[in-house]
Amino acid sequence: MELLVDIALLSMLVATAVSLILVRGLVASIMLTSIYGLLSASFFVTMDAVDVAFTEAAVGAGVSPLLLLMTVALVGRVEQQPRKRHIAFPLLLVTVTGVLLIVGTLDMPPFGSADAPALQHVAPRYLQQSGEEIGIPNVVTSVLASYRAYDTLGEVLVIFTAGIAVILVLMLPGRRGSVPDDAGRQRPRNVVVNVVSKILIPFMLLFALYVQFHGEYGPGGGFQAGVIFASGIILYGLLYGLPSVCRVIPPPVVEALAALGVLLYALTGVLALLDGRPFLDYSVLATDPVTAQYLGITAIELGVGVTVASVIITIFYAFAAHLSEAQR
C-alpha cells in the first residue's frame, strides 16, 4: 500500500515537472509549481517527515505561488517563444550532472534501510536521549531548537536578510516605510469571498498561535506559525487593500518586529555567555535542565515566529506597493 502511494506520488511529481517544461505562459507555470509543492508535501508525509510536509505545504503551495503571482501581475503573464534557442548545451549540462548524480547513488545505502550509516551515528542519540535531555516528544523540534539551535538562528537570519534585501531592492524612491495613501480606488468586491474570509481571519490567527506553542508535541513551531499568521494578515490586505492593512499594522512597526524577533533569539543565546556558558546553552535559564530547555525553546521559537511573520508581511507590502504604483 505504502509503495503504491509512493509510486503514484512520484509519477505525479514527474508529470508536473514535465508539464512545467512543456507549458508556456506564466500563470499556468505558477499553478503547476503550487501543485508540485503540494505533491511534495504529501510525499514528505509518506516519508514520515511531518514537520517538513507542513512547512513545504505552507511555503511551496502558499507563500511562493503568492509571490510569483504578484510578480506576474507586475511583469505580465506571457512567456515568449524563443526565436532561436540553443538547447544542446543545457541538455549536455543536465545529462552530465544527472549521470554524476546517478553514479553518486550507486554506493548509497538502499532506500529505507534501517542500518544505514546515517542511523548508526549522531542520529541515535537524538532519538534515544532527547526525551530525557530536552523533555519534549517531537525529536525534530529538539534537534532544531536545541542541539542544532545555531543553524536555526542562521535560518532566522536568512529570512531577515531576505526581508532587508526585498525592501532594499523594491523601495520606491523617497519613501521608506511610509504608508501608501488611499487613492480612493474601490476594488470590486465579492460579497461571498468577503464574508467568508472575514470569518476565516480570526481563526487563522488563532490557529497560528496554536501551531506556535504546539511545536514541542506535534508538527509545528515558530516558522509554520509565522507563515500562517502572515497569511491571515495578507488575506486582510487582499480584501481591503494595502492602505487599510498598513493602517492596522504600519510598515515601520513590521520592520522593527522583524529585527526584534532575531534579537529575541540571539539574546536568549547571549544570556548563556553572561554566565560563562557557551552561546545558546539554555541551562542558565533555570535550575532544572529540562525546564531550562523548555524555556529556551519557547523563547527562540517565539523569535522565529515573530521574524517570519513580519518578514513575510514586509515582503507582501513591498510587492503590493509596486502593484498599486503600477496600476496608477
Binding site: V103, G104, A116, P117, A118, H121, A123
Partner: peptide, 28 residues
C-alpha cells in the same frame, strides 16, 4: 552525510578515508 552519518568536519575527516572507493563519496 548519507555515507557517514555526520556533518561535523573533523568527524567527517575521520570517517571519509575509509570510504575512498565509494562512488557516493566521489560524487559528493
Amino acid at each position: 552525510y548519507m555515507l557517514t552519518g555526520t556533518l561535523n568536519m573533523m568527524d567527517l575527516a575521520q570517517r571519509l578515508p575509509a570510504l575512498t572507493e565509494s562512488r557516493t563519496a566521489f560524487a559528493g
